[in-house]
Design a protein around this nucleic acid. Structure first.
Lengths: 84, 84
DNA sequence: TAGTTATTTAGATAAATGTCTAAATAAAAA
DNA sequence: TTTTTATTTAGACATTTATCTAAATAACTA
């Protein structure tokens, strides 16, 4: 849960999630959407991955990233228990 | 949304939320539950308040804190749109 | 094989964060 | 009014974080 909240606590990472919601994208395509260096985006992707919010698959030279929404189930339940 | 994610990105603050889920508590009662100084807890409470996750009411010398779950509606919707 | 392209790793740095102690403020009690 | 109790504010400090540039790695292309 800690890694999940940490991953979500950044506007850039939340935007990456929004992008991946629309379609799978490789690291370069994701980086293009931001005024942030590729290494920094790579770092954000790693944090999202560690939180299991995204998965990656090597495709030739590219690394394709996909959103994993199943982990959000935990968060959803956490919130719902707070609301009783 | 930023303040909300920020507020949730800390184990102590999430525990404070869990405590307030059970019942309203004043600052001292909350601080008692942790091995953290009162000023630090006060600081956590302020961050939760800024995120509108809790409200406070002065009662004599005490300040009573309550959980505000309505703000979680936004978070809930954010998650649900990700899950399509 | 040599060069190009895609991505990550390494290392540095500035800013943000969580924590502390000491001091300030506010209310109650003596 | 003086003292005690509850809480917050101020300031300091160590750690974490987001970012960068330069270098390394991996895979395609000529």
């Amino acid at each position: 849960m800690n890694a999940l909240f940490k991953a979500l606590n950044d506007e850039t990472r939340r935007q990456i999630i929004e992008l991946l919601k629309k379609k799978d994208m490789n690291a370069g395509e994701i980086a293009e959407q931001f005024n942030i260096s590729k290494p920094s985006i790579s770092h954000h992707l790693e944090i999202l991955k560690r939180a299991d919010l995204i998965t990656s698959e090597k495709k030739g030279q590219f690394v394709e990233y996909s959103l994993n929404t199943s982990i959000l189930e935990d968060l959803l339940n956490w919130i719902l228990t707070l609301k009783k």
